[in-house]
């Protein structure tokens, strides 16, 4: 009788202590979670502000002024655009020697050209008005 009472008392105490510890841990984690949420929110707000600044700094007129001042870029004209069909037929590689100072081995020439079908010859594009008249 007494033994079992002591046993039950011990079990109850252990459970109580365990419950207290778990509750404490949960509280601590919840605080941690809330803090993380606050951090996420403030980071998101910072990102939001940075996005606005990024967009402000990327205004097309500002970019254009900067490019004019610092870079040698010019607007793309249609002479620089083409398609793969416009490329002329591949030139035959030289038999021996080197191209651009790079030694060319006989093996690479053989494997490079032997199996390739001849590519179609594209008509060069002429965009000038004079050529039409």
């Amino acid at each position: 009788m007494r033994r079992s009472t002591i046993l039950w008392f011990l079990i109850a105490t252990c459970l109580g202590v365990a419950l207290f510890l778990v509750k404490h841990e949960v509280q601590r984690r919840e605080e941690q979670l809330a803090q993380l949420h606050r951090q996420i929110l403030s980071s998101q707000e910072a990102i939001h502000v940075l996005e606005a600044e990024w967009s402000y700094l990327n205004r097309p007129d500002r970019l254009e002024a900067l490019v004019r001042r610092h870079l040698d870029l010019v607007p793309l004209d249609n002479q620089r655009l083409g398609s793969i069909e416009l490329l002329p037929m591949r030139l035959p590689l030289p038999d021996v020697g080197s191209t651009d100072g790079m030694p060319v081995t006989q093996a690479s020439i053989g494997s490079g050209t032997a199996n390739l079908p001849p590519l179609p010859v594209g008509r060069p594009v002429v965009f000038t008005r004079e050529a039409r008249r």
Binding site: H37, H48, V49, A52
Partner: peptide
């Protein structure tokens, strides 16, 4: 706790996603 930032008004962006209007 809501983890998404609530701004006063939704953003407006262009077709490439660049910000046109936002709330700070």
């Amino acid at each position: 706790v809501d983890t998404t930032l609530t701004v006063g008004r939704a953003d407006i962006v262009d077709r490439n996603g660049l910000l046109v209007a936002t709330s700070l």
